[in-house]
């Protein structure tokens, strides 16, 4: 399922923009590909990332995937409940399974991301 109102990357991250803050997570497609998530390595608060830098790792029993920073900026908040309940990524990837909130350094980069429709089309082409 692709959620409306979010922006997406080709690496299957999603971004929710609120002011100059961007909440980041992985898409339903990504969590499905991974299978049961067993561990999430969260970024450190206050860490800075450029767009496309690896910022987190999501691990399942069969794979470990980097989460790439969809937009340059500084991490303001991480979703620490994921440390004890990584399954939130499977159960609620767009809501409770968010990974971190980034204060955007360069909001123009948002133009490089896909909207829900374009991402849906991207997924269709991929399969």
């Amino acid at each position: 399922m692709v959620k409306e109102g979010l922006l997406y990357t080709k690496e299957h991250e999603w971004v929710r923009v609120e002011g100059d803050s961007a909440t980041v997570g992985i898409s339903d497609h990504a969590q499905e590909m991974l299978g049961d998530v067993t561990f999430v390595e969260l970024p450190e608060a206050n860490a800075s990332f450029a767009q496309n830098d690896p910022m987190a790792v999501v691990e399942s029993s069969k794979a470990a995937s980097d989460v790439y920073c969809p937009i340059s900026g500084t991490v303001m908040e991480v979703n620490s409940p994921l440390e004890d309940a990584p399954e939130l990524i499977n159960e609620s990837c767009y809501e409770q399974g968010w990974i971190c909130k980034v204060q955007m350094a360069n909001p123009q980069e948002l133009d490089t991301l896909m909207n829900a429709e374009a991402y849906g089309q991207f997924l269709a082409e991929q399969s």
């Binding site: 067993t38 691990e59 399942s60 029993s61 069969k62 794979a63 470990a64 980097d66």
Partner: peptide, 13 residues
Amino acid sequence: TLQAREQHIRRDK
């Protein structure tokens, strides 16, 4: 266990 990070899956990472 913890094999997801090992070389046969994660290769150069």
